[in-house]
Design a protein around this nucleic acid. Structure first.
Lengths: 223, 223
DNA sequence: GTCTATAAGATGATAGAC
DNA sequence: GTCTATCATCTTATAGAC
């Protein structure tokens, strides 16, 4: 027998600058909260996903609630950042190629084109399940005193962005948000995983997602 | 001082037939699950809401999971029942009065009228927050092995109802579901509670809910 | 039909070592 | 910067009395 004690390779995580570790934990937390929700997720699951110890998670963020809030801010930031760059790129004329590829049957006003481009950006963002599910989880946390308040603020921010910065009119804003919510639902229900396996599900997805479907079927791949 | 020991009025619940008690517990469970979600809700909260002891809740339904499933079936049943009676009443010509009150600008095909009537029925159902939030909670439980599967079935059932029984076409089905999801989100976020208090929220609600708004502002009143 | 007592297992957070 | 040990709660579920 070897005199050396057998050690698990990841028993102690590699040292790492705090900022980097933070982002790593936030990414792990996003995935866990996305699946299990605020109440359902445990700090231990987050720790395991980030390959560190549970007390360290708490040490770094103070409380589970603060961790959730930071993960939520991060998700909101990515979503709004994505929309803002679409708007900026469109208005800066840097999306001519993508605009040309849009369905011309849907008209060609700025409003309509921007709505289509933002839908595509949204579908693209959704490929990281975590971000969108994180938002979804916040949307159903209205009863939580702190998280609920932040979630409402976030939703209003998104509305203002779509309405004022993108400049979509009333009807288009409503439709844009509504279809986004439907997409979120299909993804969090995991119906998208059953595409092609069940005829009703397949029909449902093709009916509700339309052209965005192919974009949704790529799954998260491990790094 | 009185010699009589002070007793809490509801320390021991009144005896009651099992079936009646079941429905009472299910109604309580619906409210609790609606607010806190499957993982977040505790059997003790349900017990307190139903004014009975926690072990009795478990005794009656076996497990928390089974309780959730029964509450979910009940909610699904009410939703589908509500839609089915709209369809039956419409096709039986018993809704002439309501049809006359519809927005004529939106056309007058069977499809369009039915969609409007079902939206109204939905908005009506929503006045019981519990039912809709219960469904919402199931929609984000896709990762739960048993509950997730049931939730997917339920969503597909709703789709088939709208598509086949109501006979709405592809586009109308998509819109109907999408706006339903948006409505759910606004309600579970509790944005509806802030109507009239914050100008952005008020604008957002009027933009997204349109004509259905007045129906949403009545809250559950205690019996 | 309904309760009290309680077992058995999580879970969030703290203390303090390395 | 990161861990181990551990506390105090909370939560589901069981046993058994009334």
């Amino acid at each position: 027998m070897s005199a050396k004690k057998v050690q698990q390779p990841d028993a102690r995580a590699v040292r790492m600058p705090a900022a980097e570790r933070r982002e790593l934990i936030l990414a792990a937390a996003t995935a866990v909260f996305a699946e299990r929700g605020y109440v359902g997720a445990t700090t231990d699951q987050v720790a395991k996903a980030a390959n560190i110890s549970q007390p360290y998670v708490v040490r770094m963020f103070g409380t589970k609630e603060k961790l959730f809030l930071e993960a939520l801010d991060r998700a909101m930031g990515k979503l709004m950042g994505s929309f803002r760059s679409v708007i900026a790129d469109y208005d800066g004329g840097r999306l001519a190629e993508k605009v040309a590829a849009l369905d011309p049957a849907k008209g060609d006003s700025r409003e309509i084109q921007l709505k289509q481009l933002m839908s595509l950006a949204y579908a693209d963002l959704v490929q990281d399940r975590g971000i969108l599910l994180m938002l979804m989880q916040s949307f159903i946390s209205g009863h939580e005193p702190v998280i609920g308040a932040r979630a409402r603020e976030g939703f209003v921010d998104i509305y203002r962005l779509v309405r004022d910065e993108a400049g979509l009119g009333e009807e288009m804003t409503r439709d844009f948000l509504a279809h986004g919510m439907l997409m979120n639902t299909l993804i969090s229900l995991r119906l998208t995983d059953l595409y092609g396996q069940d005829s009703s599900v397949t029909e449902l997805l093709e009916c509700t997602m339309g052209v965005k479907l192919p974009l949704l079927l790529a799954h998260d791949a491990p790094p």
